[in-house]
Design a binder for these strands. Sequence first.
DNA 1: CTTGGAATGTCAACAAAGCTGACGTATTGT
DNA 2: ACAATACGTCAGCTTTGTTGACATTCCAAG
Lengths: 168, 168
Amino acid sequence: MAEGLQPQVGQSLLFLTDEQLRKGIEAMFFAYRGFTADPDRILAQKGYGRAHHRAIHFIHRSPGTTVNNLLSILGVTKQSLNRVLRTLIEDGLVESTVGTRDKRERHLHLTEEGAALERALSDAQRDRMRAAYRAAGPAAVAGFRQVLEAMMDDETRHHYEAMKDRPE
Amino acid sequence: MAEGLQPQVGQSLLFLTDEQLRKGIEAMFFAYRGFTADPDRILAQKGYGRAHHRAIHFIHRSPGTTVNNLLSILGVTKQSLNRVLRTLIEDGLVESTVGTRDKRERHLHLTEEGAALERALSDAQRDRMRAAYRAAGPAAVAGFRQVLEAMMDDETRHHYEAMKDRPE
DNA sequence: CTTGGAATGTCAACAAAGCTGACGTATTGT
DNA sequence: ACAATACGTCAGCTTTGTTGACATTCCAAG
């Protein structure tokens, strides 16, 4: 409501002050904690961490993806991802099949059990996101996404755009 | 530009679909990487990590803060914070002084060298934030902050609000 | 067709940074 | 006097990142 009372010059000049930027930085830091809090609780119960969540999320988004592809999306080393992937495969949440065209590649899929965990995690995370969206309203959500997209590295944004408009 | 073409009903009904929420979740994940990327590079050169950055940031924001207060803001255990704080004190970036009113407390301040690193880190982080703000515009920034604030845990939001309007 | 290099993925070992639990010390307040 | 508080530290464990070494597979140049 404050923005309705501010003269236009206030919006167009003051939003780039160091003070405004600092608030944005702190908002980002504190909000990210909330963003991960709910999935973290579920993961902790099952003995997993955020790294497992990320792997499960993107395997769900891109079924059949290769380890290498997942690597570039997640931005970690293959050794780091491999450890996470190994436990998920051992626990029967992820299936790894040798590539048919190129036998060096492994194609990754969620099992039924893996899909169930994915649903639990993303339900929890979406609930919070939905509440935040509802509280802030559609216009705020559009702005939220715009700023976040502008904040990404170029390479990262390509990954983001690439899976942006895929159907569920 | 797309939002100008969408009818109002599209904005008010579609923004809570699972698909929209998923995009928000992924945007948050990818943007956070960009958000930390620049400070991370500076920190790595000096042999520090994100934990050091967080400590330095909030000591800068609240000079003279106690260990306990910092603990509740950061949401970590004292053992974890202590490790970080010890290296910062040993390296002469942070000063710890015994409290005058309550001698059990330690008041934390940045030294000149600590303040210099703080400036380097926040300059880098602000540059990216500024670019994102500029690209998105004032209205988007307002929405960005609204959604982030709605995403925080209640307790976290109190910390955020508490240092929200302090002057630099 | 062979062979050497590039690509893909796995194993081993180490570091950062979180955690729990236990304990010591100084100080405060009842 | 004594319990509670604030802080520091030791020990040990977990998650998740890192590098280095190595096996397998593919492909292309000779």
